[in-house]
C-alpha cells in the first residue's frame, strides 16, 4: 500500500479535498483494517482513520506528496489507535464487570473462520502494545524494518527485537493455527 499511485496525478496542484479523495480511494480500507488489528473494534478503527484523514486534510499544504501523505496517515492511525485503546481498555474493563458475554460457536466452516480470526485478534491483543504495532505493520502492511522504525519513531534495533518477541509469542498462542503442516524448528516445541 506504500506504492506510488499511478497514473501520477499532479499532486502539487491537488488541493486538500482532492488529495483526501484520492488517498481515501486507495487507503481507507487497509488503514481501517490496520487500526482494527490494533484496537480490535471496527467502529473505533473507522473513527481513528477518519480522524487521520481530517488531520491530513489540514496538513496537506505542508505535505503535498503522496508518499509523505501515506506515511503521515499510517503514523496518525497507529498513534490514534494507541490513544483510543487506552480509553477502550477502561471502557471494556467496566463492561466486562457488568456482563461476561458468552460466544456461541457453530461448527460449520464460517464459524471456524470466525473462531480462527477471533483467536488471532485475541493473540494480538495479548501482545505488549509495541510488539502488536510492529507485528501489524510487518505482517499486514508489509513494511520494511526501516519503514516500521520511521512510522513508530523507534530504532531499527527496537523494531527487530519487538518483531522477534512478538512473533515468538504468537508462535506459542497461535500454535494450533500455525503448526498445521510444520515441524517446529529445532525439534520439539
Amino acid at each position: 500500500m506504500a506504492g506510488p499511485v499511478s497514473p501520477a496525478p499532479a499532486w502539487h496542484d491537488t488541493d486538500a479535498d482532492g488529495a483526501v479523495e484520492q488517498l481515501y480511494a486507495a487507503h481507507w480500507r487497509p488503514l481501517v483494517r490496520l487500526s482494527a488489528l490494533l484496537v480490535r473494534d471496527v467502529g473505533t478503527a473507522e473513527e481513528v482513520v477518519q480522524d487521520a484523514f481530517v488531520a491530513l486534510h489540514a496538513k496537506w499544504g505542508s505535505l503535498r506528496d503522496p508518499d509523505r501523505a501515506i506515511a503521515y496517515l499510517r503514523r496518525a492511525v497507529v498513534n490514534r489507535s494507541r490513544s483510543r485503546l487506552r480509553h477502550l481498555k477502561v471502557v471494556r474493563a467496566h463492561a466486562e464487570r457488568q456482563q461476561a458475554p458468552t460466544v456461541a460457536r457453530g461448527a460449520d466452516e464460517a464459524a471456524m473462520d470466525t473462531h480462527r480470526r477471533e483467536t488471532v485478534m485475541e493473540a494480538l491483543a495479548e501482545l505488549p502494545r509495541r510488539q502488536r504495532e510492529v507485528i501489524a505493520l510487518r505482517y499486514y502492511v508489509d513494511l520494511s524494518e526501516a519503514e516500521i522504525a520511521e512510522t513508530l519513531g523507534i530504532s531499527r534495533g527496537a523494531v527487530k527485537s519487538h518483531a522477534s518477541r512478538g512473533a515468538a509469542a504468537l508462535r506459542e498462542s497461535l500454535r494450533h493455527h500455525l503448526g498445521d503442516n510444520l515441524e517446529p524448528p529445532g525439534g520439539s516445541p
Binding site: R33, L37, V49, A136, Y139, L174, L178
Partner: peptide, 11 residues
C-alpha cells in the same frame, strides 16, 4: 493468518 484476519474486516 494476520492478513486474513485483517481482511475479514469490512469498513
Amino acid at each position: 493468518l494476520i492478513s486474513d484476519t485483517a481482511d475479514s474486516v469490512e469498513p
